[in-house]
Design a protein around this nucleic acid. Structure first.
Lengths: 156, 156
DNA sequence: TGGATACCTCAACTTTACTTCAGGCCAGAC
DNA sequence: GTCTGGCCTGAAGTAAAGTTGAGGTATCCA
């Protein structure tokens, strides 16, 4: 077993990129990528290799959780950037993220449920071929029902 | 008002690509794209311009509905290709598609709901930093609980 | 018979989230 | 001290789902 910082003796709170990759289940290339996007950060050792604090594992875990929800990396980056600057994030900080993303998740679920409710009636029957179907013609719904009442988003 | 086949006189059941675009809310370029992917098809008039049967509108509507559900175009193409060859699709044909996609939709909703159920407990608390959290470590769940019991898909 | 649109093809560009590759430098075990 | 495997950078490739642009043709209405 070669080149493994902290495999015995060094600093157990400092991880190489490969160690982070193994422990987080995220590829090294993806970690590089996240770093270029500002989602995580590292310092370099004397040889120019990345070194991460152990806390990066939680950060990566949060990133992955957010991705499963369907949040794009750019938004995850924004959310993470809003974490406190000096101190390390507390449970309350993470909770704020969770709340934020939970709302997003609720919304997505809600949209899919509404879509489901209309799917059977709309594709199977003849209404899809006419302008009056909510499944077919989201714009009309929006136009007729005013703001806040639209069933489906164009941006969906 | 220029170049508009069937705007008066010709064949009301035959549409130009621009007419399809206006009636379906899909850009001309997207219709071209769909055609290259085999999702829709057309014949050409003497001048080489695309002509569509009116039925393409329903097809496009179904494509859009499926996309809102989250089905990739390749799968939509497969599903549409499975429609009867000679005759035009009946309500029962569309119903089969609807059933198929509804199952997919149910599954997606289910996954998101499970994710939601774990989000509060997992990001907010300390468990995310340890190997035992289902939100953090889906692989472990899969490994420990055997097939069929995993909470989250890697491919999600 | 024009002129204004609409339409044609093909290639290249866009975004998101990465992966893969080439060429070359570290780190640690023996 | 050397060798194997880890790590580095930067560029290019991938997939999905289209959009945009260039250069040229069709249609239609007056």
């Amino acid at each position: 077993m070669p080149a493994e910082p902290s495999s015995r003796g060094h600093n157990r709170d400092v991880l190489s990129v490969g160690q982070v990759a193994r422990r987080s289940g995220v590829a090294v290339s993806a970690l590089h990528f996240y770093e270029t996007k500002g989602l995580i950060s590292s310092w370099r050792n004397s040889g120019g290799q990345r070194r991460f604090p152990r806390s990066v594992l939680r950060r990566v875990a949060v990133i992955k959780a957010a991705q499963r929800i369907g949040i794009p990396l750019s938004e995850i980056a924004d959310a993470l950037a809003a974490l406190p600057d000096g101190r390390s994030p507390t449970a309350a900080d993470w909770q704020r993220l969770s709340d934020q993303w939970r709302a997003n998740l609720d919304e997505r679920i809600d949209k899919l449920v509404k879509l489901r409710d209309h799917l059977d009636g709309c594709i199977g029957c003849g209404c899809l071929s006419l302008e009056s179907c909510p499944l077919r013609n989201p714009e009309d719904i929006a136009a007729n029902a005013g703001p806040g009442a639209r069933l489906f988003d164009q941006t969906d």
